[in-house]
Design a binder for these strands. Sequence first.
DNA 1: AACGCGACAGCAAGCGCTTTCTAAACAAGA
DNA 2: TCTTGTTTAGAAAGCGCTTGCTGTCGCGTT
Lengths: 349, 349
Amino acid sequence: MTVTLADVAARAQVSPATVSRVLNGNYPVASSTRERVLRAVDELDYVLNGPASSLAAATSDLVGILVNDIADPFFGIMAAAIQSEIGGPGGRAGGERLGVVCNTGGSPERELTYLTLLQRQRAAAVVLTGGAIEDTAHAGAVAAKLRKLHEAGTRVVLCGRPPAPEAPEAIALTFDNRGGGRQLTEHLIGLGHRRLGYIAGPEERTTTRHRLEGHRAALDAHGIEDDPRRTVHGRYDRRSGYEATLELLRRDPSLTAVVAANDTVALGACAALRDSGLRIPDDVSVAGFDDLPFSVDAVPALTTVRLPLTEAGARAGRIAMGREEPPPGGIAVVRGELMVRGSTGVPRT
Amino acid sequence: MTVTLADVAARAQVSPATVSRVLNGNYPVASSTRERVLRAVDELDYVLNGPASSLAAATSDLVGILVNDIADPFFGIMAAAIQSEIGGPGGRAGGERLGVVCNTGGSPERELTYLTLLQRQRAAAVVLTGGAIEDTAHAGAVAAKLRKLHEAGTRVVLCGRPPAPEAPEAIALTFDNRGGGRQLTEHLIGLGHRRLGYIAGPEERTTTRHRLEGHRAALDAHGIEDDPRRTVHGRYDRRSGYEATLELLRRDPSLTAVVAANDTVALGACAALRDSGLRIPDDVSVAGFDDLPFSVDAVPALTTVRLPLTEAGARAGRIAMGREEPPPGGIAVVRGELMVRGSTGVPRT
DNA sequence: AACGCGACAGCAAGCGCTTTCTAAACAAGA
DNA sequence: TCTTGTTTAGAAAGCGCTTGCTGTCGCGTT
């Protein structure tokens, strides 16, 4: 029925061991023999049995990529970059690896489930992307899993996620969300804004907290009181941005700027402002975060903080594959870059 | 070092066989025994060895999802929907499956490589999303792989991809790209447009061809000559839409409408028009395809054809898991819905 | 001429699990 | 009492591959 190594060996008149060595290519095999084996492989259309191979070798060629929301380009772009460094053709280094993207949907349980599944598959590496959930119990559980994975020989990399003190062996490429948030708000303050609304993401995420902290730091540095009523929490999606904006306007119709948790939310905010008859940026300025591809096409183009998602993802991928040295101390901070565009301007007086 | 089934068995004072049966839960085990085993599993923090299990059982819990471009929400949305039906309990007993997204980047070789990798892993199912590549050799190779996968017990589902006549065992959920394209262009013609530019996708994709055919059918049905100079091919991205639009304008500045291969391209087209000092839709109407989430937020909102990506993906996922009957004949056509919005209007006279 | 050694190839022992077949224990029908 | 059936547990044979160790052979050294 299915072709096995033994079949290939028989056909090539060699032992199974030799076939295995030809296929794995880390043991001297005479080129004439090798050729014979490869021909047999070809003729029989042989495909290695992955599970058997993984079992015997105690390693697999799976690399897991965990994302919060695969439908969100923020994660899609990182995932694509990571995968491009991991395998398929082109990633020659030491065999083909299967980079698999796992969608947690932002759910803690699913995150753990996937981690277990990956552990079960004896994954070669795992990359966790995006912000972490700030729940002590859950964070502890994740850290414990990461430690186990590491012990089992799985490389662990965090991309766009803060370091996990409880799992220090995980390499972390962290986005400077705090700094970016601060830059953004300072830009707005510099333009003359004093009444800024802030649409934050879900409460329990590190990304949310850090960006918000940056915003508040900027306010504080300029002696602007941070009225808690000017901050609204929501999900990281357009709808949430729309509703949050209406809420902010209800609370304070004199707002001159809205800072959104990310670009998607900012787009929703723009829609809400327009639907409320307000012009951007003449009446209200809007700023986003991430600089996703569509942001430059918004009308007006969105002022935002560009995060080098592709570069960071690629680097994370290389580190996961052991093809690049981890940063000293296992932690690197990746900075964003303020992109000033049409959606922010001098406030009306 | 690592905990094995035998360790658990020893601790629970039962045989490995019993532990296995408890874990797989498809064999009668006395509840007292079961409990003892589960406690041991818990105490030892045991995690099943996936490869070993797959080897012994000759099946794995991997489900592959192939996408052309994971950074594109079109695929991200489908992938999320598919995965949501795959993960978690629900399938077989013991049923956690690992839904893995593989990014081919639109490359034929990568597509085949991933298919081989999935075959190697003895995947439980494979879902291919998005348009196929129209290259006889490649199509044949893919079909052959699909047939092999099927023979090996892997369920194969196509989602948003035309049926593969050479691999009839693959269930196909096909988008009615031709019909959608036709509707869109007829809408424009109905508004009075006669000089329509068309920005098509890459030449060799079925999606590209079908949408274009629909467009031409509409022109033809209304006796409008199809000037080949009014069609430009490009990639499915924003940049391509931008450049193609400039090219179309150069060829015929009197265009009154631009139909884009998809929403992302349409966004680029809008940018190009605006940069050329043209108003939408007063000077030129623009239409997209897919109705991605950001399309409604474009200014003006994009007229487009909504494809039920989430529904189709979910259905494909269920079929892949064997939880839903395949459509009769193994083929189902999924229709799009014309969404008329602000980006199209009556042409200037 | 004897020896040593490098380069290859094969043997066989697992890797950790599933599953068939068998056995034990007990209840119930004859 | 003996047979038959039912339920639950164990023994053991692999699943297909990798790899440490053991040869074998030919050739350069001494």
